[in-house]
Structures are given as structure tokens and as C-alpha cells.
């Protein structure tokens, strides 16, 4: 015990928990948040592009595809996350091989966040002026070129803001995922904090989450406004 730094001892006395445990929880939360955000954003963007391109005024107008994606997004969005975790138990086990731990939790997290990201991205993409799209068509751009060279670059700052909003929502979901078997800060707050009446620890996790959200939002706003600087 002699090689443990002084401040960690203080931490343990203060919060009745080892620093390592908190560090581990933070790592797990960051892991779940990072990966589910990345995968969820990619899936969400694909869904959003399908919605925007296949809608009635879209470049690839397709009522059937649009309706399927639209209904899927609405259904998934109406299921509360904690319920989705249990509904997806079997599916998760099939994909990951187990239904607990941070990696397993990525499955319900992605399923939960991707339709939400899809709606946010859909709005961002719809903000792109139809005139720009028309100009692109008039230049002889293919649909792929219109998406990659006009729609995405034009919507970029709005997409960054959507990503920020998505990340903040996702942080809330990771806390629940933690409790349902993923570990992380949420799990720490509930199992060690709430159930052992350790109010100080609960407070600490709340503060950590607040700081996390503030940081995310600050970063998102900053990047978005930099991208928007010349508009």
C-alpha cells in the first residue's frame, strides 16, 4: 500500500471507493460512448441519406424504401432504451457472444442511437438549399457526387451540432447500459452510490457527467462555428 500516491488515499477516504475503480468506470463509459457514437453516426447517416434521397422531392424518389426506413426509425425511437436492452438480449448474444459487458452493450446503444442520429442528420441535410442541389445536377454531377461534394460539405457544421446532441443523449443511455451490465460511470453511481447510500460518490458521478456534457457541447459548438465561419 506504500506505493499508492497520497491523493488516491484521500480519494478513497473521501468517496469510499478506490480510484482505480472510478478510472475503470470512466474508461468503460468512454469506450461505450465513443464506439456507439461512431457506429451509430455511420448507420444514422446511411438512414438519413436514404430518407432524404428517397423522399417525395428527393433525387432517388422511392416511396417503398422511404416508408420502410421511416417506419423503422419511428418504431425504434419509440422504444425506451432500457427496454431495448432487454428486448435485444438474444440479438446481442448472437452478435457478440455474450449479453453483458461494455462491448455487448454497444449493440443496444447503436440500435437505440442510430435512428435518433438519422432524424438529426435528416434535418441537417434538408437544410442544404435545393438550389445548390439543382446547380449540382445541372453540372452533370452523379447522385454520389451530389451527396459527397455538395450535400455533406454544405451540411457539415449542422452535422457536427447534430453529432454533439447525439453524443449527449448517448451519454445518458450509457449510464443505463452500465447498470444493465455494461459497467461504467452509471453503474458506479447506482451500484456503489445509490445502493450503499454513498451520496458523496453519487454527487461525484453527477458532477463528472455534467463536466462531460459541457465539454462535448463546447467542443461541438466550437467546431461547428469554425466550419460556419465563412457563411
Amino acid at each position: 500500500m506504500n506505493d499508492v500516491p497520497q491523493w488516491q488515499l484521500w480519494f478513497r477516504d473521501e468517496f469510499k471507493i478506490k480510484w482505480d475503480k472510478l478510472a475503470d468506470a470512466l474508461g468503460k463509459t468512454a469506450y461505450m460512448l465513443g464506439w456507439s457514437l461512431l457506429i451509430g453516426a455511420v448507420v444514422g447517416m446511411v438512414l438519413a441519406l436514404i430518407l432524404v434521397l428517397c423522399r417525395k422531392e428527393g433525387l432517388l424518389r422511392n416511396r417503398v424504401v422511404y416508408s420502410i426506413v421511416n417506419v423503422y426509425v419511428n418504431i425504434v425511437r419509440s422504444v425506451p432504451f432500457i427496454i431495448a436492452v432487454f428486448v435485444l438480449y438474444g440479438f446481442t448474444r448472437m452478435l457478440v457472444g455474450k449479453s453483458y459487458g461494455p462491448t455487448a452493450m454497444l449493440v443496444p446503444l447503436v440500435v437505440y442511437i442510430s435512428p435518433y442520429m438519422a432524424r438529426l442528420f435528416e434535418n441537417s441535410l434538408l437544410e442544404v438549399s435545393p438550389g445548390i442541389i439543382e446547380a449540382a445536377q445541372a453540372m452533370g454531377a452523379t447522385t454520389w457526387q451530389i451527396v459527397t461534394r455538395f450535400m455533406l460539405p454544405e451540411a457539415l457544421s449542422s452535422i457536427v451540432l447534430a453529432l454533439t446532441t447525439g453524443a449527449v443523449s448517448l451519454l445518458g443511455a450509457t449510464a443505463m447500459a452500465g447498470y444493465a451490465g455494461g459497467g461504467g460511470v452509471g453503474d458506479l453511481a447506482l451500484t456503489y452510490g445509490y445502493q450503499t447510500y454513498n451520496e458523496k460518490l453519487m454527487l461525484l458521478t453527477v458532477v463528472i457527467l455534467i463536466v462531460f456534457v459541457q465539454l462535448l457541447q463546447f467542443l461541438g459548438n466550437r467546431i461547428a462555428s469554425r466550419l460556419r465561419a465563412h457563411k
Binding site: 438549399s129 445548390i132 452523379t142
Partner: peptide, 22 residues
């Protein structure tokens, strides 16, 4: 062929339709 033909036809718009941030 239509895409190729469009490259030989320029178009100018009332609202310019330029990428304002570029």
C-alpha cells in the same frame, strides 16, 4: 450520356446557388 451532355450546358441562377462558405 445525359450527365455528359449537361457538362456542355452551363446554367446560371437567380439566387446564384454557389457554395457560400467556399
Amino acid at each position: 450520356q445525359m450527365l455528359l451532355l449537361r457538362r456542355k450546358i452551363g446554367m446560371v441562377f437567380q439566387q446564384f446557388n454557389l457554395l457560400e462558405g467556399k
